[in-house]
Write a protein that binds this DNA or RNA. Structure first.
Length: 341
DNA sequence: AGCCTTTGACCAGCG
DNA sequence: TCGCTGGTCAAAGGC
């Protein structure tokens, strides 16, 4: 504090010599996201699911996979996994999920299985340069996820059946789902088009940071959700990390001037679904694309308004943190992976 | 008018 | 103990 009292130039002008800063509303700033999220929302391993898939109505995903990584690249908005890679497909795979919901296959097995499926599907493995196919998959493991995408060029919403009938215990560990698919060359200027309203409250170039990191908060009152967004120099999103769990439904979609248009069907339906605020974990009304219960996993479905080129990842060390990473923006590589582990 | 972005300062954790 | 770092605050300005 004292060290900063010199307040140079701009800073001095903007900030009065300094009334002691009020204590932050968030828990001890210490752990930042972690602390806040942990303290405010720690429903379980899959809080991340909720954050990850804000569109999901009741993402009470109870699975215990600790990390969820989804590398995705801007598939057109209402996006769905190819049949062979859809969460449902993955979950339907007996090799991946036992009838009891336990994961009974190794990474290699999972990989082999998904790869095989991919090979037989219209969405076969493709090379990075091939833009004709939306996805390809390389490995998989537990669950799938869905993806954030651009708000532009959306294709008709495609619902992926949820897997309420499948049971999935909390034993998803060390498995990974990796899906590679193509991305479009969409460009987004906002990392926040995921159905929620966000307010940027900070930006910083982190250490080693080639890219600036932006900090966003959900603008809904009392909503603890935050997200960090890293962009490349060309504006592409490199990574998005969600923290916390929305304690409200999607707000009525507010169209930006540039975004134009009106709510799409998904938005409308989602809003209906979100009419009632959720109360407890497991009842998050993240617009229904991701639903799970203690006994079942379901997956995010196709439609998701979001940003493109992202990779979702929930790190194991912070159960409710979800990372959405884009591919290497620098090389324009369109090959993305979906990883779950 | 209200909301959002920008941006430097502040602060706590960590090594 | 100190410096570094990441995260957050909040004034100012823009839309």
């Amino acid at each position: 504090m004292a060290a900063h009292e010199h307040e140079d130039g701009d800073g001095a002008a903007r900030r009065p010599p300094a009334p002691p800063r009020p204590t932050h509303s968030l828990p001890p700033r210490s752990a930042g996201f972690a602390a806040a999220a942990a303290a405010e929302t720690r429903p379980g391993p899959l809080t991340l699911a909720a954050s990850l898939f804000p569109d999901a109505p009741s993402p009470s995903f109870q699975g215990s996979f600790t990390q969820l990584l989804v590398a995705a690249s801007a598939p057109p908005s209402p996006f769905a996994l190819p049949p062979c890679l859809s969460p449902t497909a993955l979950l339907d795979s007996p090799a991946l999920f036992s009838p009891t919901g336990n994961f009974e296959m190794s990474h290699q097995q999972a990989l082999a299985q998904v790869t095989a499926q991919a090979a037989h599907s219209p969405y076969s493995m493709i090379n990075q340069a091939d833009y004709s196919l939306p996805y390809s998959s390389t490995t998989t493991s537990a669950l799938a996820s869905h993806h954030v995408n651009s708000s532009a060029n959306v294709t008709p919403t495609q619902e992926i059946p949820t897997l309420s009938s499948h049971t999935c215990n909390n034993n998803i560990e060390s498995t990974e789902v990796s899906q590679v698919f193509q991305t479009s060359t969409l460009t987004i200027d906002k990392p926040s088009d995921d159905g929620y309203n966000w307010r940027k409250y900070g930006q910083k170039v982190v250490k080693g940071g080639k890219y600036p990191r932006s900090y966003y908060k959900c603008t809904h009152s009392n909503c603890p959700v935050k997200k960090k967004v890293e962009r490349s120099s060309d504006g592409q999103i490199i990574q998005i990390i969600y923290r916390g769990q929305h304690n409200h439904g999607h707000p009525p979609k507010r169209r930006s001037k540039d975004g134009g248009g009106i709510l799409n069907e998904a938005d409308v339906s989602q809003e209906k679904e979100d009419a009632s605020p959720r109360s407890e974990q497991g009842s998050q009304d993240h617009c229904g694309k991701f639903e799970a219960s203690n006994d079942g996993i379901s997956v995010p479905s196709a439609s998701r308004r979001g940003d493109r080129d992202e990779k979702l990842l929930a790190s194991s060390d912070s159960e409710d943190e979800v990372k959405v990473e884009g591919g290497d923006a620098s090389d324009g590589n369109t090959n993305k992976r979906w990883l779950l582990y």
